[in-house]
Amino acid sequence: MTTTLPKLSVSDGVATIRLARPDAGNAVDLPTAIALRDAVEGISEALDEIHVVVLRADGRLFCAGGDVRAMAAAPDRPAFVAELAGVLHDALDTLRALPVPVVAVVQGTAAGAGVGLVLAADVVLAADHATFVAAYPSVGLSPDCGVSALLPAAVGARRAALFLLTGTPVDAATALDWGLVTEVCPAETLDARAGEVVAAIAALPRQAVGEAARLLRRSGERPYAAQLADEAATIARLSATAEAGALLASFAPAPAHPTPGDSP
């Protein structure tokens, strides 16, 4: 039987988490949320092997959000929704804390929690027919998965309000203009373009790009002085690594050697 839980695979330094409930629009039910959290925790335990994380999905939709059928059927709905959101939030919090770049490849609609997954990524590549929609108002719910925190930072407060308060879908071109996605390309070239971007990230020094991604995520969450302190501590720590030492030496000019007859 084919699994419908998120799949984690690691190859050549690339960890891919793939949503795999295409018949349900990759909607997130509790088993999916738990599997997603487990996948992220698995990545956190293997950081020495991983240069970049890729979020992908099977089927026509990227992610339809939380599984509203499961919510509607829950005997204790508030308890179920709290648990579902809590597990998802643990996964996203762990993901954004990783010193590893995260790339999302959006082949179709991202709604509700799916927008939260998009916002959790550092680089977002979208197919030209992809759409983005809050979805929360249509089922009488408020945002989760960090949408209310990260969306204003990505697109601005006014656009975030329009998006969340009206529930109006945003097409890929508009998402690019707003800054919700990094790049839009034809659907038939999306996989190839994603491969190029991931390869470019993976080719760079792992710790350097990983810490850059982590610092970028923290930049809007704390005072400037705290960010400067973290930058100073991080660059000093990286300067002690063998990789940085070799690269710094390759850029430094070789010391001049005195020749016979030179003055001391």
Score class of each variant (00 low, 15 high):
Pro137Ala: 03
Tyr136Val: 01
Ala187Val: 10
Phe132His: 03
Gln207Val: 13
Val100Phe: 04
Thr259Tyr: 10
Gly167Phe: 03
Val14Gln: 03
Thr234Trp: 01
His129Gly: 01
Trp178Thr: 07
Gly261His: 02
Leu92Ala: 06
Val28Thr: 06
Val87Asn: 06
Gly13Asn: 07
Ala161Thr: 13
Val155Leu: 09
Leu151Phe: 07
Cys63Trp: 02
Glu243Asp: 14
Val181Ala: 09
Val106Leu: 07
Ile43Lys: 02
Val40Cys: 06
Ala225Leu: 15
Leu92Pro: 06
Val14Asn: 00
Glu49Lys: 10
Ile50Tyr: 01
Glu41Asn: 04
Leu190Asn: 08
Val115Asp: 02
His89Thr: 13
Val123Thr: 12
Lys7Cys: 06
Val133Gln: 13
Leu88Arg: 14
Asp128Leu: 05
Val118Gln: 15
Phe163Gly: 03
Ala153His: 15
Pro258Thr: 02
Val102Phe: 02
Leu141Ile: 09
Arg21Lys: 14
Gly65Ser: 06
Ala202Arg: 13
Ile43Gly: 05
Leu95Gly: 08
Arg37Gln: 09
Leu176Pro: 00
Asp12His: 08
Thr4Glu: 15
Ala173Met: 08
Leu216Thr: 10
Gly59Thr: 04
Ala70Thr: 01
Trp178Ile: 12
Leu151Tyr: 04
Ala57Val: 12
Gly146Glu: 14
Pro78Glu: 08
Ala15Pro: 08
Ala254Lys: 10
Ala229Tyr: 06
Ala15Ile: 06
Ala33Asn: 09
Arg37Ser: 06
His51Ile: 05
Pro137Phe: 10
Gly66Ile: 14
Arg193Val: 11
Pro6Gln: 07
Ala199Lys: 05
Asp48Arg: 12
Glu211Lys: 11
Asp58Ala: 10
Ser148Met: 09
Ala208Asn: 01
Asp128Glu: 12
Pro169Glu: 11
Pro260Trp: 14
Asp76Ser: 10
Val28Phe: 02
Ser138Cys: 03
His89Glu: 15
Ala232Leu: 04
Arg77Met: 14
Gly261Gln: 13
Asn26Tyr: 15
Thr131His: 08
Glu83Leu: 15
Leu117Glu: 04
Met71Arg: 12
Leu162Arg: 13
Ile201Asn: 02
Pro143Val: 10
Leu190Ser: 08
Asp177Thr: 15
Val54Phe: 05
Gly114Pro: 01
Val14Cys: 04
Pro78Phe: 11
Val197Lys: 04
Ala57Cys: 12
Leu117Asp: 02
Ala212Thr: 13
Arg222Ser: 10
Ala79Met: 05
Asp67His: 07
Leu141Pro: 08
Val54Thr: 11
Leu92Gly: 07
Val105Gln: 07
Ala256Lys: 14
Arg69Cys: 00
Arg222Asp: 01
Leu151Pro: 07
Ala39Pro: 01
Leu95Lys: 03
Val106Glu: 01
Val123Ile: 15
Ala161His: 08
Ala208Glu: 14
Ala39Ser: 13
Gly167Met: 00
His129Ile: 12
Leu125Gln: 06
Pro258Gln: 06
Asp122Gln: 11
Ala113Gln: 10
Val52Gly: 03
Ala232Trp: 00
Ser138Lys: 12
Asp48Thr: 09
Ala35Met: 12
Glu231Asp: 14
Ser142Thr: 14
Ala208Ser: 11
Ala46Cys: 02
Val197Leu: 11
Ala246Leu: 15
Ala192Ile: 12
Leu215Tyr: 00
His257Pro: 00
Asp262Tyr: 12
